[in-house]
Design a protein around this nucleic acid. Structure first.
Lengths: 347, 347
DNA sequence: TTGTAAGCGTTATCAC
DNA sequence: GTGATAACGCTTACAA
């Protein structure tokens, strides 16, 4: 074959000719439509092979009105291109784990994943238009901002979509989420179970619903055990903030013997801060993290933590989108995952 | 608007009617072709607005033979769906940083990013076919395995592509890479400059070209300064392996006063291991990492490290692909980035 | 069971 | 400068 770029790519017509049948028959064979003579079946596939035919997606979706693509949309408040937040976001395992989860269900079905980042209202509106036009058949959505309007717009646009994480505002769109409060309960029970009595918590940012829920669950479980009050310090899910928060918590409650930290990265930092204060983990202070990320494994001692099954959740979100594409009349659905406690060495 | 899903989407024809012009004129206006009466220009855009028209990508690319999509291909040796390696890969910031870099150049141009994972030879062959057919106009490729055949296949298929990282086998395809050896030199000079004389290195996996280059650079620089030999231990780029390697290195050279570690994660582990041995960093042993990842910032003391500008490199790879799409006759090009030393506290 | 032919929504080549 | 009109490659009634 000469220059493959200039060479005209074989079409259905070419295959048909090579097989001595009509274009329609070839199409049927390729798409696995029944009512085709088994003999032709073989002949056609042979011709496909001989010609090196590959279906043209554009032509196909033009008529089927299906793109065979699902979009993974990251919707953020403000993100010009070199937005430091987005830089951090992409570098965070959170993003990759979701991609991996979504891929695990899309790939076997031969469905494409198209990545979309929308930071402005204009971009959001355009996205909904593009999706409505069929650029993708549906979307798995990561809505990063509490008052993001995208979920509502997707609903109004009639787009098949599923959110990863409960929407801050109630919207008739399917979503998957983690029972974050149950995670808080798990942490509390474990800490109390091992005899801790002077507890504290390093929370995530107050405006993040998941943070709130973790705190709520932790608080309620402690209350059930008679701990009406405990000190909390708000962190920002970063290592730095975890370190600072731990130190502040220690100041507020020097007798501390157990901490629940809203994510592993901060927990890892907390452990280091405690060691810096000559406090042994878990003997003097027990630490429970959240996520079961690599930070939990990389901490010394390794972190006892609450497992956040992000990959599974993202995969389920993809499944929700797919089933809704198949049958748009399906009712809105939410799937809540239960967190599990992973006991290691820090508590 | 009734049910947006069933509603027929407006086409060029509808806009044309609303504007009182022909389909062709509307097309011209939308695509910014000159030779259009400025008055009509305004009228048409108004009609577009009024009708809520959004161009149909499939129809457009059917005729233009352009998909407006670039693929980000991850080519791995063996990856069935729940392959633990891929799980780790996606959770690693490496992946996300590349996505971010690629997106930063694609997004402003309105080009889609389609993610593709190919783990088997069959998948690779199909991918090349799909790309040849125009599923995407080009590809940014992450080839994870030393004897990956994909680069060669892409070349033979005449696909516009650029690799992130030098291909293990020489192939006439553009790529971007980091001068890893120069990074090794930087580390050596710095360590020697601060007076270290009993040095060692924790390398990456031997089969990874980048690992080799970092070692080579480090070795050559040391040789220039009269250090003919130094102990090395091979790690696997993981925290765990960094910890083990550090301990072994210490056993081989108890007098160690400086280490170069091939990535930050292992360096972070090394620092912890040293502290566990009651050795102060950097006073007793200086540590230089590689990557300037979040692990460098999260380590205590924070890591002096060699910056790996992954985002910039990925962005450049995207640019190479784009220019090659524009002009397929462009010659193969490689862009090598220079690493920089980031001095913090560990050395 | 197979073939014929009518679109799908654009862009691009012509005349006008 | 603008408007018909012919592709682009495929799926899918409808006929045979």
């Amino acid at each position: 074959m000469s220059d493959p770029r200039s060479a005209r790519k074989p079409t259905l017509e070419d295959v048909a000719e090579a097989a001595g049948v009509s274009r329609a028959t070839v199409s049927r064979v390729i798409n696995g439509v029944r009512n085709v003579d088994p003999k032709l079946h073989a002949i056609v596939w042979q011709a496909v092979d001989a010609t090196g035919y590959v279906p043209n997606r554009a032509a196909r979706s033009l008529v089927t009105r299906r793109s065979g693509t699902v979009a993974l949309v990251v919707s953020d408040a403000v993100s010009h291109d070199d937005d430091p937040f987005m830089r951090r976001f992409f570098a965070d395992p959170f993003f990759g784990r979701i991609v991996g989860g979504v891929m695990s269900v899309l790939r076997p079905k031969g469905i494409q994943l198209a990545l979309q980042i929308v930071g402005t209202d204009e971009a959001r509106t355009r996205l909904v238009g593009d999706l409505g036009q069929g650029q993708a058949d549906g979307a798995v959505v990561l809505s990063l901002h509490p008052d993001d309007t995208l979920p509502q717009q997707l609903y109004e646009g009639g787009i098949a979509a599923a959110l990863v994480g409960r929407p801050a505002q109630p919207v008739p769109i399917s979503y998957v989420d983690l029972a974050n409060d149950a995670g808080g309960v798990l942490a509390a029970e474990h800490l109390i179970g091992r005899g801790c009595s002077r507890l504290g918590m390093i929370t995530g940012p107050a405006h993040v619903p998941a943070s709130q829920d973790r705190l709520t669950g932790f608080r309620q479980a402690l209350a059930r055990h008679g701990h009406a009050w405990f000190p909390t310090v708000e962190g920002g899910f970063t290592y730095e903030s975890g370190e600072t928060a731990m130190l502040e918590l220690l100041e507020r409650q020097p007798e501390l013997d157990g901490v629940f930290v809203a994510n592993d990265v901060m927990a890892q930092a907390a452990v280091m801060a405690l060691r810096g204060r000559e406090l042994r983990v878990p003997d003097d202070v027990a630490v429970v993290g959240f996520d079961d990320s690599s930070a939990a494994l990389d901490a010394r001692p390794q972190l006892t933590t609450v497992r956040h099954p992000l990959e599974d959740m993202a995969a389920e979100a993809a499944r929700l989108v797919l089933s809704r594409i198949d049958d748009p009349s399906l009712r809105v659905e939410s799937v809540i995952f239960d967190p599990k406690l992973v006991v290691r060495q820090s508590a």
